[in-house]
Design a protein around this nucleic acid. Sequence first.
RNA 1: GCCGGCGUGGCGGAAUUGGCAGACGCGCUGGACUCAAAAUCCAGUGAUCGCAAGAUCGUGUGGGUUCGAGCCCCUCCGCCGGCACCA
Length: 850
Amino acid sequence: MSSERRKPYPFDKFEPKWQAIWEERHFFHAPNPGDQGFDAARRKFYVLDMFPYPSGAGLHVGHPEGYTATDIVARYKRMRGFNVLHPMGWDAFGLPAEQYAIKSGQHPAITTRENVAKFKAQLKRIGFSYDWQREINTTDPRYYRWTQWIFLKIYNSWFNPVTNKAESISTYTGENPDAVRLAYVADVPVNWCPELGTVLANEEVVDGKSEVGGFPVVRRPMRQWTLRITAYAERLLNELDELDWPEGVKLLQRNWIGKSEGAEIDFKIDNSEEKVRVFTTRPDTLYGGTFLVLAPEHPLVDLIVTEEQWPAVREYRERTARKSDLERADLSKEKTGVFTGAHAINPATTQKIPIWIADYVLIGYGTGAIGGVPAHDERDLEFARKFDLPTVMVVQPTGNEPAFGFTGDGIAINSPIINGLTSAQARKKITAWLEDRGQGKGAINYKLRDWLFSRQRYWGEPFPVIWEHGKHRSLGEDELPVVPPSLEDYKPTGTGQPPLSKAKEWIRYSDKAERETNVMPQWAGSCWYYLRFCDPHNDRRFVGEEAEHYWMGGQKPGGVDLYVGGTEHAVLHLLYARFWQKVLFDLGYVSKSEPFQRLVNQGIILGEDNQKMSKSRGNIVNPDDVIDQYGADAFRCYEMFMGPLEQMKPWSMRGVEGVSRFLARVWRLFMTENQAGDWELSAKIREIDGDKAQQKMTHATIKKVTGDIESFSFNTAISQMMIFVNAFTGAEAIPLPSIRAFLILLSPFAPHIASELWEKLNAKFTDAPGDITGQQWPEHDERFLVEDEAEIVLQINGKVRDRMKVPISATEEEMKTAALSNAKVQERIAGKTVRKVIVVPKKLVNIVID
RNA sequence: GCCGGCGUGGCGGAAUUGGCAGACGCGCUGGACUCAAAAUCCAGUGAUCGCAAGAUCGUGUGGGUUCGAGCCCCUCCGCCGGCACCA
């Protein structure tokens, strides 16, 4: 006797069976143009998941949420006659494998191989229809060879502002190409994380802590590789418009890019040849500028500070340098600053104004200097109050609010050149006026910083770069891949020296040249993996031209038709990948300027306790356990039935059970148990069309499920299929065409049970041979949905008082007459005046009385 | 502080986009089957009052538009996410 509970239907028998069949027969392999079996007459559909980092913990229930949605779409599109590209791979460079290597001494490649095997087995158990022949792994030299190749392309390019695109560095005619390369080395203050022993990109720092691990991050100047993503700021911003992405994600990217339009204005320094350039979005408030503030790090400070102010300035600068970003950004604290002793001339008023330094002005944004306009800027006002600086009102609000402290647009006052103009007009005029006098010009600023691209770690792509006499030089394409050496000790050095610096032999490239020892960040591999999927085994090109054209082609600007993943990558992966795509596009290597046309974010799945799943809370759900108990189909269907894909929602084992019951009902609709306890095809299934209600139900279900898949409402599609099964459960006879159609509708959601039942039907009936995945998606016929009668609602003053049936053809006049003669209506309107009657055909009649 | 999203039964969630609020599922209650239980099947299940027919109330709060509002407009409250001295 098995202690295990009897399965409500034998999923444990047929799910592995179908998974094996799919694998052996390469059911879901998508041939490329030119390959055997490729059908050029079919349109393509590229449906992509965000490939996972194969961690040691295995799959959690969040992964398969998006994966199930894309799998449903992939299976649906195949049945609709598309060539579907639906691949999966591994984003396997990264910290955890390396941390484990540090502890165990085991090479990260080994851990990675084990984890990949585990993930793959888990994904296969869920029955996803991936084309496993296209599997890729970012840590495979055959893959990262091309990541390095793309880096070389970026390194050997520059952004030509005239053509507004990247071009080969050979078209650059200036004297120092290294100053304009899209990949360059810069000695700048960077985010250094001592705990991780590496620098991090701005995007990887959250609230002054590392995104991975939550360790403190400090500012520290270091020599680092940087990618010139800022050259693409405008295009990254503009080309968002064409994408079918959630507005929220577009907004996050827009804010991250942070475009500001305004002017740069030069302030002459009193008694000096120097001038200070400030950036402002409000040149119209220039007359209100009563002081200047420089960032403490501003290089001009050294040149202008007066003798007697030096001690105070030096002390302030040192104090600022010691502060972490977090402390410096702490808004609750009061404004601080020090007078430099120097003065500047306001070009509009020609008055002398003091120059201060303060840490609320950031060296990294704009020009690192601002004009203080206390009357119309909150921060400047706070600063002016603290240090008793003068204020001048120059904007009159058009509403009732006080002018002092008003930060909106209004009418210029106390500003001779622009008095009476609206703020917008004033901005234009004063900018033109400054330009005429050579004292300023219109300017645009972005918050986006260049992408810090090197890491002091081991487990990443080495740079295909060598150093000779203090100068960097790229390796040739024929020298790729650059494979990292094996190390005894993977630990970060703690000094900022990368671990690879310990591999003395590897470093030595020649008598004179040494290898670069930094590695690329984890994002590098994922910046172009969607391209590699088009042609994963090509060893002559990062992706074959024909394959890229076909799978990434189409009318829209983006190549991937559907991309599903979490929202956590909104300003990381999704921005970086767009950047690389644009560089490759400019250089003529790919056909689209955008990688992903349609993006859908799946919501986070919470634990049963409505809390975020975490080890410490003990509320993690393991997909394997769920599949053991309820099967893969129930798991898939529950993931979709929980609620809208994009919404955050809690897990519920009871809910899984409910969906499992539904699938058991499906099973028993087709199968009955005989005396011996074996399942056999139900004798109720007949080759008949079924009655009118059954046909209506069938066609209504086809219509609803089809529409719901198209609109990503998978939860309501499943509801409709439940309604269908409930309707047919008690039936005397079950019409074959109805349940054939139903099985096809069910198959993207629950492919195993649908395949199994389809096969059982085929053993008896010969009307639809072959496997279910090769069937055509059914079309609904409106004729089965039309009704002779409509039930309409009778309202009096908007409240429902009765219902009645009217012929579907009833005119408004007929409906009105019928409604007014209704007994309950009569009762209620007796003695009252009917003011108005509203008739909505086929829906309702509303009678308005006193 | 600013920007965005969301507030519907005991719970997850539906609602053709202004027209019967609560589909479907969970849970609960009752019944059938069973010696019994599980499983399964059938029925009921927003709240209040009522024996019932039925009535009244009901989509975070308060107001507005409309014959009619979960849906549109304004106010406030709460939760979630993002940005955070960006000049």
